[in-house]
């Protein structure tokens, strides 16, 4: 099984703009009930990870090979940022359900399309 995400254009965006792309998958087995495409942010660093799923698209009963376009509007906040203790990372994730393979592409959502460095 393989699942991939392809973004249209650059992965760095202004908040409030649209992220577009396509999730593609191949060789799914019968156990895969759905493909879930999510816009989310999560934290990485020294402390416990925090995650927020902003929007999801669910493809029910996917065929063994297929694809689905997505378009998510990035909220105005929070912005992508990074310091030595904590980073906030935006991402598009595509996952097979029940729990299976996951593909993820990190994106940036910040003014000037550059991660804020603390």
């Amino acid at each position: 099984m393989t699942i991939q995400i392809h973004l249209d254009g650059n992965p760095a965006h202004e908040p409030g703009t649209e992220v577009r792309g396509r999730a593609t998958w191949q060789s799914l087995n019968r156990q895969s009930k759905s493909v879930l495409i999510s816009l989310l942010w999560h934290t990485e660093g020294k402390g416990t990870e925090d995650v927020a799923i902003i929007e999801q698209i669910k493809v029910e009963g996917p065929s063994a090979a297929g694809s689905r376009e997505f378009a998510f509007v990035l909220p105005n906040f929070p912005w992508s940022f990074s310091g030595t203790l904590l980073s906030l990372v935006w991402a598009i994730e595509a996952s097979l359900e029940p729990a299976g393979e996951v593909a993820r592409v990190d994106i940036v959502s910040a003014p000037g399309t550059e991660e804020v460095q603390l």
Binding site: K46, E49, S82, G83, T84
Partner: peptide, 14 residues
């Protein structure tokens, strides 16, 4: 270079 949390090899999720 600034050492960012998301690049730290010892970050919690790793």
């Amino acid at each position: 270079a600034q050492r960012l949390a998301r690049q730290n090899p010892f970050r919690v999720n790793r």
